[in-house]
Measured scan of single mutants.
Amino acid sequence: TGYYDVLGVKPDASDNELKKAYRKMALKFHPDKNPDGAEQFKQISQAYEVLSDEKKRQIYDQ
């Protein structure tokens, strides 16, 4: 599964769309709200870390 799929956004998503999707998913799977969501929360955080950084995103998109 790709990072875009993890966040539920298209590859041409804007920074604002990425942030909005990340916040929505992070709230849904945060371990405090969803004890079984810890692994998914890590994936969401990693996806956002890469896609929100312009240089990392360019490398990922290659």
Rank of each mutant, 00 (worst) to 15 (best):
D15H: 15
A21F: 01
K24C: 14
V6L: 15
S14V: 01
Q46E: 13
S45R: 15
Q43P: 02
Y60K: 03
E54F: 14
D61N: 06
G2M: 11
P31H: 08
I59F: 09
S14A: 03
E49D: 09
D5E: 13
Q43L: 15
Y22I: 02
G8Y: 02
S52A: 09
S52R: 12
Q43Y: 12
P31M: 07
Y3A: 03
S45I: 14
Q43V: 13
H30A: 11
Y3R: 01
F41G: 00
I59R: 10
P11F: 12
Q58K: 14
R23T: 11
E39I: 10
K33Y: 14
K10F: 07
I44A: 04
K42N: 08
F29M: 04
A47M: 00
Q43W: 12
L51Y: 00
G37E: 09
Q46A: 09
H30F: 06
Q58W: 12
D53H: 05
H30N: 09
A38W: 13
A21Y: 03
D5S: 10
S45F: 11
P35T: 05
D36V: 07
D32Y: 08
Q46I: 15
D5F: 10
K33C: 14
G2W: 15
D15N: 14
I44G: 02
K10I: 03
Q58T: 09
L18W: 00
A21K: 02
L51F: 02
V6C: 09
D32E: 10
D5G: 10
Q43E: 10
K55M: 10
S14N: 09
D61I: 06
D36R: 09
A47E: 01
K10V: 04
I59A: 13
D53E: 05
D61C: 05
S52P: 02
V6M: 10
D32P: 07
V9G: 03
Y4A: 00
Q46R: 12
S45W: 13
P31D: 08
T1A: 11
S52Y: 05
K20C: 14
D36G: 12
P11R: 11
D61G: 05
D36T: 09
Q40H: 12
K33H: 13
P31K: 09
K42Y: 10
S14E: 05
K24H: 10
K55G: 08
N16E: 15
K10G: 10
E17P: 00
G2V: 07
N34G: 06
N16F: 13
P31Q: 08
Q46M: 13
I44F: 04
G2L: 13
A38L: 11
D5L: 10
N34E: 03
K28G: 05
L7G: 00
S45E: 13
K56Q: 10
Q43K: 14
K33F: 14
A38K: 08
K55S: 10
K20I: 15
Q46Y: 11
L7V: 01
A47S: 03
Q58I: 10
D12C: 15
L18Q: 01
Q62G: 08
K33A: 09
Y60W: 03
K42I: 09
E39R: 07
K42F: 11
Q46F: 11
K19D: 07
L51N: 03
K19H: 09
K24F: 10
K33P: 01
Y22D: 00
L18A: 01
P31S: 07
Y60D: 01
Y60Q: 05
N34P: 02
Y48K: 01
I44C: 05
F41I: 03
T1Y: 15
S52K: 08
E54C: 14
S52G: 08
V50C: 08
I59K: 11
Q62E: 09
A13P: 00
F41V: 01
P35H: 05
N16S: 13
A13F: 08
N34C: 11
K56W: 06
K19W: 14
G2K: 12
K28H: 05
K56A: 10
I44E: 01
V50Y: 08
L27E: 13
G2P: 08
T1D: 07
K55R: 14
R23A: 13
Y3V: 02
A21W: 05
D53I: 05
L7N: 02
Q62Y: 07
G37P: 02
F29N: 03
E49P: 02
I59G: 06
N34D: 09
E17F: 01
Y22F: 14
Y60N: 05
G8S: 03
L27S: 12
S14D: 11
S14Q: 03
D32G: 08
G37I: 04
D36I: 07
D32C: 14
Q62V: 07
Q62L: 12
F29G: 01
Y4T: 01
E49K: 13
Y60V: 05
D32F: 08
E17R: 01
D12W: 14
A21P: 00
V50T: 11
F41M: 10
Q46T: 10
P11K: 09
P35A: 07
L7E: 02
H30I: 05
E54T: 14
I44Q: 00
G8C: 11
A26C: 15
I44N: 01
S52N: 05
Y22T: 00
G37A: 12
D32H: 07
T1S: 10
A38I: 10
F29L: 04
P31E: 04
H30S: 11
D36M: 09
D61V: 02
G8I: 01
A21G: 05
K56H: 04
S52H: 06
K24D: 12
